[in-house]
Simulated assay, not measured.
Amino acid sequence: MAWNEPGNNGGRDKDPWGNDNRGGREQGPPDLDEVFSKLSRKFGGVFGNKKGPSTGGSAAGLGVVAVLAAAVWGVSGFYTIGEAERGVVLRFGQYHDTVMPGLNWKATFIDQVTPVNVQAIRSLSSSGLMLTKDENVVQVEMDVQYRVSDPEKYLYSVTNADSSLRQATDSALRAVIGDSTMDQALTTGRQEIRTYTQEAIDAIIKNYDMGLLVVDVNFQSARPPEEVKDAFDDVIASREDEVRYLREAEAYRNDILPKATGRAERVRNDAEGYSERVLNGAKGEVAQFEKLLPEYLAAEQVTRDRLYLETMERVYGNTSKVMVDSSSSGNLLYLPLDKLINPEQKASQPKNSTSGNYGIELETVKPTPVTTTPRPDTGRQGRY
């Protein structure tokens, strides 16, 4: 007789996995036929079958249960992958596929999906006391920015890709600092250290195939030990002053050189103009004397007198003084037309009370005798 037959043990039925205590003895494992029969009766009661268990009812109940279970299993397999993510699918614990963003389906209890963000820029920092090539100790800080390039390799090539990248960054940074001097790490070699560190990190990532891509490496700071920090600060300040002075000198040079070049060009042009003017004037005078030479040779005395008179005319025409011969007698009336024509000039001397005209300064000048000297070669008289 089955353990859960009606009326057994005083009508106290146990659940399929319970124990019926019969006189202190434990019952053996439950009968599977009875378990399925009981489940069929329960589902049959839900769907309107209340006449007790039967073979047809049990089959129908099992079918309904199977359909419901299949529907629940199918619906539970739908999932969504974000736009910036990729889904890594494992089937029975082994890599199967990488799915793209959108609505996807997986076999529940068979497939396992892990979404990985491949667009987010991640960051990690590395810092510590490091020994330089010249046996000095510096405090170095560096920040590395990276992202996931291959989700499968990121998850399963190494145990922890982020931790492995942190260790690779620390190792690469220590190697680069160890090949640099303290002066380079603090001042001039910061850009080179940044470049070499990124190259070393890329090489390590390539060897370990981590599925990561380094976007940027920032060399944040490098500080000397506190005991010598003040001295190094003075060195850095002096170098910054040197760079500033050089830039100021270059700016001053760029401002002065064009002006000096312009002035030099102007002076050179003025000199060339003056040279051409003097040369042309000299050539004109030479040409004038060459034209005058035949006349002088034809009539020397007449030519000298004419030159003298023309010269005196030019000289007297440029002066305001009136010169008369002392041999002449009588009063000379002079009307200063130049002062009357030009109102800006005023007479500086008082009026003559005797003649009523403006007073003028008179000088007596004796005519300069013209002398000639004979030429030694031809016997002709030379020019004055």
Rank of each mutant, 00 (worst) to 15 (best):
L212K: 09
Q119V: 05
S125D: 13
T169A: 12
M142W: 09
M130N: 04
Y154N: 06
D111W: 12
R190K: 13
M142E: 14
L212W: 03
I204C: 00
S149T: 12
I205S: 01
A161M: 13
Y146R: 01
A161P: 13
L173I: 12
Q145K: 14
P115W: 11
S123P: 07
L124K: 11
A200T: 02
M182W: 14
R174A: 15
A161Y: 09
A222S: 15
S123F: 01
Q167H: 10
G128K: 05
D202I: 02
G189L: 02
V140A: 11
K133E: 15
L165Q: 07
S221I: 11
R174G: 03
A200Y: 03
S149Y: 11
Q139V: 02
T132Y: 07
S221E: 15
A120H: 09
V144D: 02
T181Q: 12
V214A: 09
V158A: 08
L186Q: 09
S171M: 05
V116G: 15
D170K: 07
S125V: 03
Q145D: 11
Q191K: 04
V113F: 15
V138S: 13
K133P: 05
R194E: 06
V118H: 09
V176E: 02
R190W: 06
I205D: 08
E192A: 08
S171W: 08
E199C: 00
D150S: 04
E141R: 14
L212R: 02
V217S: 01
E199R: 07
Q112G: 14
P115G: 06
S123Y: 00
N136E: 14
D183F: 10
S221C: 03
K133M: 15
N160E: 07
D216I: 02
R194K: 11
Y154M: 14
Q184E: 13
S163V: 07
M210Y: 04
V214L: 13
Q220N: 14
N207A: 08
V215Y: 05
M210V: 02
N160Q: 01
N136T: 05
E199M: 06
N136D: 15
N207S: 06
R147K: 10
G178P: 07
S180Y: 03
R166S: 10
D209L: 01
Q198Y: 04
T187N: 14
D162K: 09
L124D: 13
V214S: 01
V176W: 00
V118R: 11
I177H: 04
A168Q: 03
I201E: 10
T181F: 13
A222N: 12
A172G: 12
S127D: 14
D170H: 09
T114N: 15
I177L: 04
D150I: 00
D134I: 10
R166F: 01
Q191Y: 02
N160I: 02
V144I: 08
V158I: 00
Q167T: 09
Q139E: 03
R194F: 07
V113K: 12
M210T: 10
A161R: 06
K206N: 11
E152L: 04
V137C: 01
V148T: 14
V140D: 05
T181Y: 15
V137E: 08
L165N: 03
E199P: 00
